[in-house]
Structure formats: structure tokens, C-alpha cells
Amino acid sequence: MELAACPECDLLLNPHQAAVGENAHCPRCGYLLQRPSKQSIERTLALSIAGLLLMLPANLLPLVGIKVLGTSHDGTLWSGVFTLFSEGMWAVAVLVFLSSMLFPLLNIVLSLLVSFYLHFNKPNKYLSHWMRWLQHLKEWAMLEVYMLGIIVACVKLTSMSEVKFGLGLYAFIALIVVSGMLASHLDGYLFWRHIRRLNNKL
């Protein structure tokens, strides 16, 4: 039987495969070791395809718009980044671009790639690289924080103008839901076990 260790307190553990619906916690520090999900690979694959499809309208269609003195103004994810950049705030613009556009996209693309190869049982020498990038990228994709930013901005704007929600906002909210489900269905423990098995076939 192979041993495992807790990533946060280094306690040596005898791993047992947690059942679906059961959460495996470290007995010493309480770290959530594994939360298995039913058909983790298949659901990850399906959710990443859904996320990829939603990415386009969420990025290109207007999220919110305002109407002042008869003229209306729409804002997309991209226009925010662009305006910041043209005002000379390039550092903030780059950060917003990465955390609201590029990293969420990469997150979904990498989930798609990994779950695709695992589902069809195909070995690939880049599988462990993709999985590693995916784990490091996760916390830098901040769509849900952006959503909260939209809400606060709208509250601030209601005092000076009329605010209307665009079609892109619905795609954006759907994308947040899909990303959240993706995070909870992707069972890293199971994925690494399969990657290991496939890497032996290389």
C-alpha cells in the first residue's frame, strides 16, 4: 500500500479511497485532502466544453451599460482593460486582463485538455505539465470577484445615471457558475492517479 502525506502539515497518511459524497480530511490539521465527485473526468470534460462556449459571449457582449443625457455607453470585459491601458495604467490593465480574461480561459482550456486525454485513455507527455499549470493558475482566475466588482460599480452608478444589464452579463454569470462547478468536480487526487497510470504507458 502506498503512503501519502498531508500538503499542509506533512502528516504521513495511509490513504484510503474516499467514497463519493464523503470528504477526506487530514486528521491532524483538518486539511481537505479529497472530495471525490461522481464521474469526475466526464463532468470536467462536459463543463469545460460548456465553459469554452460561454467564454465568447461573456468576453465580447456588453456586460453593463449606462444612459446619461440621452447617450448610452456599454462596457465589455475588454473595454475596461483597454481604457485603463489608454490612460497609462498599464500595470493595472495587465493584471485585470490576466485575472479576468486570460487565466479563466487557460483554466478552462487546460481542464478540457487534461480531462479529454484522461477520458479517452490517451497518454500524452504534456499531461503532467498541463495539470501542474492548472493547479497553479486556479487562484488567479477571478471571475467571481469581478462579478462583485460589477455589483458595487452598478450601485455607485445608480445615483448618477440609469444602469442597464447587457446580454454578456448573463453569459458571464453562467460562466461563473460553470467555473465553480468545474472547480468542485475536478478531483485532483483522482486525476493525478490516472495521469500516473497513463505516464507509465508512454
Binding site: L63, V64, G75, T76, S79, G80, V81, F82, T83, L84, E87, V92, V96, S100, M142, V145, Y146, L148, G149, I150, V152, A153, K156, L157
Partner: peptide, 8 residues
């Protein structure tokens, strides 16, 4: 993010 939206 809030500033990004307000600015645009």
C-alpha cells in the same frame, strides 16, 4: 475591478 468598470 470596480474601478475598471467605472473607468470604461
Amino acid at each position: 475591478f470596480m474601478i475598471t468598470i467605472l473607468v470604461s
